[in-house]
């Protein structure tokens, strides 16, 4: 347990936090768009949700570029 705490404290949070926040923001925007569209995605919606959530930085980008119909 102590080791994990130490490791976490070693992470330079002030530097890393903005990156995580912005990446999260991108994910949320993609999710909102995906859900708002309902079934209007190329391919099944639940696959795109998985891609957005677990695809790292590229998940939302790929969704925005290729996931939407009549763009």
């Amino acid at each position: 347990m102590d080791e994990i705490v130490n490791e976490l404290q070693a992470v330079p949070w002030p530097v890393v936090a903005p990156i995580i926040i912005i990446q999260f923001l991108l994910m949320v925007i993609a999710l909102i768009d995906c859900l708002r569209r309902g079934g209007e995605t190329k391919g099944p919606q639940w696959v795109w949700i998985l891609v957005i959530v677990f695809g790292g930085i590229f998940g939302p980008i790929i969704y925005f570029l290729f996931g939407r119909r009549n763009d």
């Binding site: 990156i19 912005i22 990446q23 923001l25 991108l26 925007i29 993609a30 768009d33 930085i57 939302p60 980008i61 925005f64 939407r68 763009d71």
Partner: peptide, 14 residues
């Protein structure tokens, strides 16, 4: 409307 004005700048910022 299709979020291009949000997501493209966000990608560049990232």
């Amino acid at each position: 409307r299709n979020f291009k004005w949000i997501w493209i700048p966000v990608v560049f910022i990232l």
